[in-house]
Amino acid sequence: MQNLTSQQANWLALPPPASPPRWGKALCGLAIALLWLLPFSYVLLAIFKSTAEYAASPPLSLPEGVSPLLENIRMAWEQGDMAQAMLNSSLYAAVGASLAVLLAAMAAYPLARMQFRHRNLWFLLLFAGTVFPFQMYLIPLFFGFQWAELLDTHLGMCLLYTAICIPFPVLVLRNYMQNLSLEIDQAARLDGASEFTLFWRIILPNLRGPMSAVFLLQFTWIWNDMLFSSVLGNSPDTRSIMNALLVFQGSYAQSGPNIMLTAAVLASLPTLLLFVLLRRQFMQGLRV
């Protein structure tokens, strides 16, 4: 069985680079990376300021010290009720993203590699679920959830997030499955493997890069969503982290921006951590 993702395709067909790495290019890359990080500076300055200091100084001034950060974290964590919300979001994101990516991969498999009538229509049917702006799902889902008594339950939120995260991976995984050579299927079929074994043992392992990419994306999407949680699961027991953040902020933005931003940074840490953990998986598929 060959592993296709490790195959190093030299897609520009350029000769390998001259042995000393190109430092000029590296410098250029470094400049771009720094430019990319520049917008974060405001946030990084603000979280080190106390509320009074923030109010008194221009937004981009340097903080007087680093000690207010701890107090900001404490305030954000306690007042923002973040612990329960983080737990909820972890559940939604972990269950929703893994289930969605798995189900999407299963659905993408026949769409990419089997012959049957109206294949494109079936694909469009799956894809059509998310072409509406998401706000318009709120009212019908509210009535539906009320009927099924799923409002403010973890189960309801998990189901919804799983469903909403299916179409995008179907599109992406179908594409990469189409790119895999058909010969491996035939070889496996000659060996008497069932379709499911083929899918599970051969196709999936070859899609590790794209699978981890879409998993990460769907995980962060669920983690970052506040819209659905705010109408369908707003009770403190089921509230998602971004929703908790906005409840904390309130519509009049009253707690100081410094504490708000500290809370936002805290709320982003788990997805960043996941990214760091998955980075190896993820980047291996990207080495070209």
Partner: peptide, 14 residues
């Protein structure tokens, strides 16, 4: 509490 007035109104109205 609800996160913002619009979503809150939607919840009440629905």
């Amino acid at each position: 509490p609800y996160a913002n007035a619009e979503q809150y109104k939607t919840f009440i109205q629905a």
